[in-house]
Design a binder for these strands. Structure first.
Lengths: 210, 210, 210, 210
DNA sequence: GATGAATGAGAGTTCATTCAT
DNA sequence: GATGAATGAACTCTCATTCAT
């Protein structure tokens, strides 16, 4: 993937017709499968098109280059995650802080273990991409959801633990722990949830002290 | 980098002569420079050999393929880190837990910020590599150093916080937080140290509660 | 542009309805603009159709292939030029040979400098095209106009300077000199007209001898 | 051929070893043959490499891109021409102006008719290339040779006909007339030499007046 | 007739790896 | 052991052309 001008990372056109959305969907699904099966090594535009049962040309009709395809993939995945996160936060509105954290931990684990290879590959690509793209918007959204959660429990938290930076750190921690375990075994070890919870509540200063 | 048989990842030979070690060193130094200056995009065996002032053929005399070179690079870097870590742990033998954690945090930050591009690229490659290589040995060693540190302060910690898994989690958390910040700015933000400390001591259950 | 059978270079049909002529006109105008703005690099059928505000399919309704479009473009441009030339010749019917040559030189210069990129691109394509197409008809017509001019001044000219070959040579010389200058600067150098005149009258044997 | 940075047009390395020169030679010879046989349509790097009996990779070892190959081709051809021109000028040092012009005309004709397709293709490409490359140096050299010729006969010429611009115009005229004829028949028409001479001496103001 | 999504051959270029010298 | 020219599979991307709607 050669250096790509920033502007070129967004999809070529917002497909207005139904058929177009199907195409985009097909391509992203194919890209997902390729990434899941063959990791980044086998991920190339020809292969994606082939798996999608479509010609390369069609791929380039919707994505100006390979990077844009990857961005769209990440974008979509992060949108899904953000939505799930927002729902969890909303669903736990009345519950205790502990329950909320537990729900968040579950979400993080589910998300990563549903397809570890795919999730890991996306994370990698995400890091490689230039900062300042729309991808950061989704991170903002993820952060905002977590921040909303923190604010729900503001009275139970030290005041300096209710901030965007804290929200971001929680997301980073969760991702790091889950991803590392996910790379070692297909099923989450039984203590992962426990450890993740410990890390999150510890950072928030609500851990059980000795 | 096409799929490489696992066995092929180790250096072609343990060079027994002094001259050979010089060669390996030169190559790894060149690889480091290439990675630091041109990131993964410009990292290829021909370029590394060129920068090393050596022929590609020579490179392949010591590394059976590109992956092996990368592995050696990571290996070496982790060895350095492990050594630094062990020294820090040893140097802090008599000090307080808080001081020890602070020292560890500093080490993590220094390590990543000394050359962010290089560090990020290596992390990237490390994750891509097949598991089960000798790289895990160094992770073991890193883990062991942290574990030793935990054991030094066993009485101040909850008993279940003195274990290899905990050590590994601490390393993961540190790396995640520092790496994320390092990708956004060339200098560490002033609060990074604080937040990292909070995450580590929080996970250990020694954070200051409200 | 893959090898195209000679027969395929003429427009698909002589559009008999008014609407069709509008279409052809729109397409040629669009082609002209694309060629002028983006040179040969950006000249492709999809782009032309887009600029024309028409679907590619429609383009192929009127031109069997890209080459035919180019031919039509050149054809039209040469027709314009031929007409202009004929008018100049006619307008200078009573004037002196020197005045006539001056007028011809002006025409050549104007023609090329009005839109250098476009003119150069067309010349380029014209040369690439297989010989023997209807394009030669226009060259005939251009030649005929110049020949008519020569005949008007037959008595002032050496007898062997009144022939189709001479006419063609004059056109070639004019084009070569003007095109070369046009490629170097956006505005004609002040001496171009002078030099061109010298070349033309020199070839005709009516130059001022030392 | 996508837009190429100016600097990238020169050969990748000045091959210092004998083997390298052989390679460059082989490649240029192959390029010449491809251009002569299949014109610009079939001229692509893979084909050139194939005809050279060499892998594409080798081609790119010596030419950073396709454009550089073309430039080298033109460069070489112009160098040959320049040398031939200089020799002709030198050889005619003592002779009359008319004889000198005749010799120059012969040279122009020979040059273009030796391989019309190839010569035409090169001329086309040359025009397309960005100005300001080393190619202009050869044009300078060609111009200088003609200028030297003019200076030899300065006393027989109007004073304003001894200048670089005049030299350039003579070259342009010669090229235009010969190229046009060369495109129409494999053998030069018997009157070409005559017409060319008339054009050149006419421009110089030494034509036989009626 | 018009549309424009889809096609896919083909072009330019890279780079891990080999092997004759 | 060292060299580095040579290799060629693989990859990204373009664009002339078709055809179902």
């Amino acid at each position: 993937m050669p250096r790509t001008p920033r502007a070129a990372l967004r999809p070529r056109k917002a497909p207005s017709q139904a058929r177009s959305w199907v195409m985009v969907d097909t391509l992203l699904a194919a890209a997902t499968r390729v990434l899941a099966r063959e990791s980044l090594a086998g991920f190339n535009t020809n292969r994606v098109a082939e798996v999608a049962g479509v010609s390369v040309g069609s791929l380039y009709q919707y994505f100006p280059n390979k990077a844009a395809l990857v961005v769209a993939l990440i974008d979509r995945e992060q949108a899904k995650l953000a939505q799930a996160l927002e729902e969890v936060v909303h669903a736990n509105a009345g519950h205790s802080l502990a329950d909320g954290l537990r729900a968040l931990a579950c979400l993080a684990i589910d998300q990563q273990y549903r397809d570890p290879v795919f999730a890991a590959a996306l994370d990698h690509e995400e890091r490689r991409l230039p900062i300042g793209t729309q991808l950061r918007q989704h991170e903002q959204r993820l952060g905002a959801a977590v921040l909303a959660f923190l604010q729900q429990h503001a009275q139970e938290l030290p005041p300096d633990r209710v901030s965007p930076v804290v929200a971001r750190d929680l997301l980073l921690i969760a991702r790091a722990l889950v991803e590392a375990d996910a790379q070692e075994a297909r099923k989450a070890p039984p203590d992962l949830s426990e450890r993740l919870l410990r890390a999150l509540s510890g950072y928030l200063g609500v851990g059980q002290r000795r």
